[in-house]
Write a protein that binds this DNA or RNA. Structure first.
Length: 387
DNA sequence: GGACGACGAACGCACATACT
DNA sequence: AGTATGTGCGTTCGTCGTCC
């Protein structure tokens, strides 16, 4: 039985019998995981870590991040998101493990299983085995065991799911209607997704929040936003550069603008910040080419490896990583499989597009605060055009 | 007809609380 | 001292309408 079948069997979301069907499915999932974990607990009960582990892999704690307060070791581990190379290493470790111990290939069960009924004592057989497997997966990586464990939970189960399908929505509705209290637990297991997104859905449904409207940003509207931020922070424009604002400030701005503050802050950091603080003639095509140069000199293998905050370091004052990401991603989103193909290929495609004369002269619409306190366009190049 | 603007939502970190 | 559950917020990806 799969999700599609389950969704098809549900005729009426409001009918309590629908919840029973979902629960049956949940039980099946649990049983499947339990079965696999039994094999694991039996086969690996006497295994201990025999390979040398760096200090950051020695913690006895699988689900909580490393507490490194009094660490004097100079050996460091990485803290950025796990990249493609590491992903492959983890998968390779898993293949080695199942081969060595003759296990079924069900990493999903290992990731999905939760210790609810057994002893949580770190020295219990179950917890020791779990830690052993996670340590095995983390072998050879500059990562803590927790990082790797977390990674397989969110990625290897079913990589990159993105939007919910109609079937998923239906099943979610059933759980939200009949068992809102346990919905997240059930759904996370059934859909193979992180609980975070499901909590969010629940939150939207039952608590609601400030509505986001679709705005048409104009210079007067942007002026209003800038003035509002300046007023509530008490800072002059220049000091807003690269500033983060407290939520209390954003909430006041939200009221002034009558728009959800998250949308406002996104607009500020993605567009307006650059338009105000990049004080020179920015040709967008030239800018993109510079990004490609940075990418070429980096160690990134695929698009998802790119750390935009690091890319930003190569750019002059005023730019934000959100802006760079935005400018470049629009070039590639339409390209099939752009997340997976090698970065050299990406650069090649980008350079080819940059050559199209039609867009060659696009410039960033730079702004400044005029004498009257309103934003106005400023052109840094000589061939001034009509507004 | 491709690029851009503006947003929704998944992904992911960090931390808090409850329980054992 | 560990696990599971719950929450706030920043980052990244997808989509759709509009502009040029």
């Amino acid at each position: 039985m799969d999700l599609k079948t389950l969704a098809n069997e549900i005729e009426d979301v409001l009918d309590p019998a629908s919840m029973d069907k979902v629960l049956m499915y949940y039980k099946d999932v649990q049983e499947e995981d339990e079965e696999f974990m039994q094999i694991l607990f039996e086969n690996l009960r006497n295994e201990t870590v025999y390979w040398l582990q760096p200090w950051y892999q020695l913690s006895g704690c699988l689900t909580r991040r490393l507490d490194e307060t009094d660490e004097k070791n100079e050996e460091k581990y990485r803290s950025d998101p796990i990249c493609k190379e590491e992903d492959e290493k983890i998968k390779k470790n898993w293949r080695k493990l199942i081969k060595k111990y003759g296990l079924p290939d069900k990493l999903i069960s290992f990731a999905r299983w939760k210790n609810k009924e057994r002893s949580k004592n770190p020295n219990s057989n179950e917890e020791r085995v779990r830690r052993f497997v996670a340590s095995y997966l983390a072998r050879g990586l500059e990562r803590t065991v927790q990082q790797v464990f977390k990674y397989i939970i969110s990625h290897l189960i079913e990589p990159s799911k993105r939007h919910y399908t109609a079937e998923e929505e239906k099943i979610m509705e059933v759980c939200f209607t009949h068992q809102p209290h346990n919905a997240v637990i059930y759904l996370s297991a059934i859909l193979g997704r992180e609980p975070r997104g499901i909590y969010k859905r629940l939150h939207y449904l039952f608590k609601g929040c400030k509505e986001t409207k679709r705005l048409k940003w104009t210079i007067p509207l942007a002026t209003k936003l800038v003035k509002s931020i300046m007023m509530h922070t008490g800072l002059p424009l220049e000091e807003l550069k690269y500033q983060t604002f407290d939520k209390s400030v954003w909430l006041k701005v939200q009221e002034d603008m009558n728009q959800n503050y998250i949308a406002l802050s996104k607009f500020w950091y993605t567009y307006l910040h650059v338009q105000i603080f990049a004080n020179y003639d920015v040709k967008l095509n030239k800018l993109k080419k510079k990004v490609y140069r940075v990418l070429r000199e980096s160690h990134y293998q695929v698009w998802t490896d790119i750390r935009w905050k690091d890319v930003l370091k190569h750019f002059p004052d005023g730019f934000t990583h959100l802006f760079l990401y935005k400018i470049c991603s629009t070039t590639f989103v339409k390209h099939p499989n752009y997340l997976k193909i090698p970065i050299e290929k990406i650069i090649e495609i980008g350079l080819k597009k940059a050559k199209m004369i039609r867009f060659n002269n696009r410039r960033l619409k730079t702004l400044k605060l005029g004498d009257d306190g309103n934003l106005e366009r400023v052109s840094y190049h000589l061939t001034k055009k009509k507004e």
